[in-house]
């Protein structure tokens, strides 16, 4: 088991390095840098001025060196200006070059500076992640239990009328992407002209104080899309378990149907959904981006959109690192959990 986890972690780190390098090189392509120079300087810069700006800030080094600097394994670039002052990535304004550290990258905890929010990337991501964490917590609390109940109820008697109805519901929710269900939910529950006016159509106020009125719709929108999929997986695995021999034995022994479902079938039926729930995280991230944009909730997903559409290179890199990290860690947990829960799978 230890070796298995070690190997998985090794592959994970390799994947993480590959992916961050990929994002790094895509965001540091010359057209992006040129745009960065123009937004930082002025829009009427000549090509020579752009080149000298990029040269001064060390953007014209080879990609792999820049990546190493950003990661914090290569000493960072310093440029001596014509007036003798030295500037560089690690040298804060007002700091003497001799005092500044030589390495400053993600490994040292320096994530760079956001050009859009005019703030440290690290602190932006921390605040935004906190907001999204709040959203995700409620999504999980709503989605997982309702999906499991839906799946177990429809899987315990396969082919029954209840199964048909609940399956159709879960198919419908998987067919409804967040931007569709969000629009429909806002139309029904939050529109100011027609509809029920139960909830608010934006969640901006939920960032400070979340309550049922301003937070339920975004949570429901994200939950609905993931719910159908988990419910279908649970249903399939429940239906399979219910045909097993030991369930028939229990039945013949005279155990009541409720007891069979809860005490005998449920534990074995929940192995598959566990991995599915874990693997849902990348999709949830997708949903989070859409829903945060739709409901104007300024969390992590909203930050991703802002960073990407405003060419905020360092913020975008930070956001990518965090999201890639989340995806890889959940994959790892799902693998380990699967092995742990299912005695039939051996590690070797």
């Amino acid at each position: 088991m230890g070796l298995f986890i070690l190997r998985r972690v090794g592959v994970m780190i390799l994947t993480g390095l590959c992916l961050t390098f990929l994002v790094f090189s895509l965001t540091n392509l010359y057209p992006n840098l040129e745009k960065l120079a123009k937004t930082q300087g002025n829009f009427r810069m000549s090509d020579a001025e752009v080149t000298s700006y990029l040269e001064r800030n060390g953007y014209l080094q080879p990609m792999i060196v820049k990546y190493g600097e950003w990661l914090g394994v290569v000493p960072s670039y310093r440029h001596e200006n014509s007036d003798g002052t030295i500037q560089g990535r690690c040298i804060q304004p007002g700091q003497a070059p001799e005092d500044a550290p030589h390495f400053c990258g993600v490994l040292q905890g320096y994530w760079g500076f956001s050009t859009v929010f005019k703030d440290e990337v690290g602190s932006i991501i921390a605040t935004r992640l906190g907001l999204t964490g709040k959203l995700m917590l409620w999504v999980m609390l709503l989605m997982v239990p309702s999906a499991l109940i839906l799946g177990v109820l429809s899987g315990m008697r396969e082919g029954s009328k209840m199964d048909r109805t609940l399956s159709t519901i879960s198919i419908t929710t998987t067919a409804t992407p967040e931007y569709v269900s969000g629009v429909i939910l806002i139309a029904v529950f939050a529109s100011s002209t027609v509809g029920l006016k139960w909830f608010k159509g934006t969640a901006t106020s939920a960032m400070e104080s979340a309550n049922f009125e301003n937070f339920f719709l975004p949570v429901l929108t994200i939950s609905l899309y993931g719910m159908g999929y988990i419910a279908r997986m649970t249903r399939a695995s429940m239906a399979e378990v219910m045909t097993a021999q030991y369930i028939r034995t229990a039945r013949l022994k005279g155990v009541s149907f409720g007891n069979i479902v809860v005490k005998h079938a449920l534990r074995n039926a929940l192995i598959a959904p566990f991995t599915v729930i874990m693997l849902q995280f990348p999709w949830l991230l997708n949903g989070v981006v859409i829903v945060e944009t739709l409901f104007n909730y300024k969390g992590f997903g909203w930050t991703l959109v802002q960073a990407a559409s405003n060419n905020d290179i360092e913020l975008l890199l930070g956001v990518s690192v965090v999201s890639v990290f989340v995806v890889l860690v959940t994959q790892l947990i799902s693998d380990i959990g699967y092995v742990y829960l299912n005695p039939r799978i051996s590690v070797s």
């Binding site: 992916l19 994002v23 990348p282 859409i290 991703l304 990407a308 956001v319 990518s320 890639v324 995806v327």
Partner: peptide, 9 residues
């Protein structure tokens, strides 16, 4: 492992 929206952007 790449978030789809990030890839699109």
């Amino acid at each position: 492992a790449f978030p789809v929206i990030l890839l699109f952007y």
